[in-house]
């Protein structure tokens, strides 16, 4: 904000103050006694009936190999797939997220100007479609270039592929934006690792334990004065298992 803009905004604030007193406060009467949550306010836990909802076995193998290089098992915690990130993303892709219900998916689209305006690439495809086409393209690339399934490649090779994707250099064909795909995978694997366990990932709260996040607690006043101390708070899920 430059000086001119700052002065203008001050003027706007002054004008709004001049109007505000006329509005007056409205007294709240007849507060609704019903505090039951309505269905559309309920969280929607992952549905787990044993199987996967949208990702095929081949897709899960490819995706699992990629996820586990982004979040490998080490002394701090389990790998992405061990923590349930595949179950998490399968459940998300099967629902509103996968269908892109919150996204505008109509044209027109001009990749250059969108990148400039939004700072990130925009897509007309839903997340589920992007996973489907992206995983197929990556698998095809591995078979063509390495002569193997992507899931069977050594870790260093997968790391190199991910590095190329991140840099936007991996050519997966005209239809696939490899940098955008990398960003999508990285974002979702983090979400799966750190979201509440009720959404299928963060199994046994491994992600929360790794970063020391105590979960869906409401109030930290009992601890506020205990500084510089590992509080060893037990992480809590929003909907504790039975």
């Amino acid at each position: 904000m430059n000086r001119r803009e700052a002065l203008f905004s001050l003027g706007t604030i002054a004008a709004s103050l001049a109007v505000a007193p006329g509005l007056g406060a409205v007294e709240l009467k007849g507060v609704p006694h019903d505090t039951q949550l309505s269905d559309d306010h309920m969280p929607q836990p992952a549905i787990r009936s044993g199987g996967f909802l949208v990702l095929s076995e081949a897709e899960r193998r490819t995706l699992g190999a990629l996820y586990d290089r982004l979040l490998p098992a080490d002394e701090y915690g389990p790998s992405a797939t061990e923590a349930g990130c595949l179950e998490f993303i399968d459940s998300q892709l099967a629902g509103h997220y996968g269908a892109g219900k919150a996204l505008y998916l109509e044209g027109p689209i001009r990749p250059e100007s969108e990148l400039q305006l939004m700072g990130t690439a925009q897509f007309l495809a839903s997340p589920l479609e992007r996973y489907r086409s992206g995983l197929a393209a990556l698998e095809a690339y591995a078979q063509r270039v390495d002569g193997q399934h992507l899931a069977d490649l050594p870790a260093e090779r997968i790391d190199a592929l991910l590095g190329e994707m991140e840099a936007g250099r991996l050519d997966l064909g005209q239809a696939i934006n490899s940098k955008g795909l990398f960003e999508l995978l990285l974002q979702n694997v983090r979400e799966g690792y750190l979201a509440d366990p009720m959404y299928g990932g963060n199994r046994n709260m491994a992600g929360w334990k790794m970063i020391g996040f105590p979960g869906a607690r409401y109030d930290y006043r009992p601890y506020i004065d205990r500084r510089g101390e590992n509080l060893r708070l037990i992480p809590v899920s929003l909907i504790p298992a039975d």
């Binding site: 039951q36 992952a46 389990p78 061990e82 349930g84 366990p197 009720m198 199994r203 046994n204």
Partner: peptide, 15 residues
């Protein structure tokens, strides 16, 4: 007619 507890994924034993 209160809500039932929402079903959540079963906890899985750590490998």
């Amino acid at each position: 007619g209160a809500h039932q507890k929402l079903a959540v994924p079963e906890p899985v034993s750590v490998k």
